[in-house]
């Protein structure tokens, strides 16, 4: 690889390396979202029984297949139970911004969503979610909870966790949004505080003007630079032209066009005069050049001969 190419590619590789070093949890698409350890009268599973459950949320805007992921649960060091989410079940594909519930009932034979894990109702429980590359992507320590009380993120995929099910405002939300959005807050805010729309108009026009004004300033500068550069190039070419002209003038003054002085011209003129004045033979015939055929000029030889099977 040439030095030039290396010079181009090295910064790209360095940039890529820098970006990969900056790898954060923003790449993680699925998170643990809510856990209920003591299910007395809460959500029932498909067998009609009440069991502890763990909710996983796909926070991205694309579908995610969690087949091959692992759920691990531990209530004290050394007793970790792992559940491998089986492959081949189409239901393990979580749609964008959707939830899926896993039952911590210790009965994996009941189906994909029934795990081998069991949560301890009397101790803190550590729950971890691992991706198919066995990399921990999310974990939470669930405190000891009462009956039908869950430990959940304040809203889906939020960083803060809270205890839910203690009052009417904070209710348990299995398989659904942790915070029910009943209205469009942005629109409501505009409806409340900007009934006439003047606020929106001023804000939006300010942004439009700011954007286009910045573009104007940038292109004014770019234009000035471009004009300056073209002017400089023009000046340079003018200067070069003038220099060349001066040089030619100087040369003309010192020498003639072919670099010979006048004495040489005089000698040539005299030689020509002598030659033209001398006696020459006069030929009777007209001399012509006859065209002859050769392998280089014949049309036949220039054509490609199609090979024929014999």
């Amino acid at each position: 690889m040439s030095k030039y190419k290396v010079r181009i590619f090295l910064p790209f590789i360095a940039l890529l390396g820098f970006c990969s070093c900056n790898h954060t949890e923003s790449n993680v698409k699925t998170v643990l979202n809510e856990v209920l350890t003591y299910n007395s009268n809460n959500f029932q599973d498909d067998y009609g029984t009440h069991n502890a459950w763990i909710e996983i949320f796909n926070k991205s805007y694309g579908s995610v297949d969690i087949a091959g992921y692992q759920l691990k649960v531990s209530s004290q060091p050394g007793d970790t139970i792992a559940y491998y989410i089986p492959k081949g079940d189409i239901q393990t594909i979580i749609k964008p911004r959707q939830h899926v519930l896993f039952w911590a009932d210790g009965k994996p034979s009941r189906g994909t969503f029934h795990t081998s894990c069991v949560l301890d109702t009397l101790k803190n429980n550590w729950v971890g979610l691992y991706d198919s590359g066995h990399k921990l992507i999310d974990e939470v320590v669930v405190p000891v909870l009462g009956k039908d009380i869950s430990y959940a993120r304040v809203r889906d995929a939020a960083k803060e966790w809270e205890i839910k099910g203690t009052d009417d405002k904070h209710y348990v939300t299995p398989n659904t949004n942790n915070l029910t959005i009943e209205r469009n807050e942005k629109v409501d805010k505009f409806q409340e505080k900007d009934e006439s729309g003047i606020g929106m108009s001023i804000t939006a026009m300010t942004v439009v003007f700011t954007g286009l004004l910045t573009l104007y300033i940038l292109f004014r500068c770019v234009g000035k630079i471009a004009v300056g550069l073209s002017q400089r190039a023009k000046d340079k070419s003018n200067q070069k032209f003038v220099e060349e002209l001066n040089m030619k003038k100087e040369e003309k003054e010192n020498k003639s066009v072919c670099g010979c002085n006048d004495e040489v011209y005089a000698a040539i003129a005299m030689a020509l005069h002598e030659s033209m004045g001398a006696v020459h033979d006069v030929e009777k015939q007209v001399l012509t050049i006859r065209r002859t055929s050769s392998p280089w000029s014949t049309k036949w030889n220039a054509l490609r001969v199609i090979p024929q099977r014999k």
Binding site: V208, F209, L212, L213, Y216, F219, R220
Partner: peptide, 10 residues
């Protein structure tokens, strides 16, 4: 060539 015209668009 005349970027101030951008402001009319705004």
């Amino acid at each position: 060539s005349n970027p101030k015209l951008l402001l009319i668009g705004a």
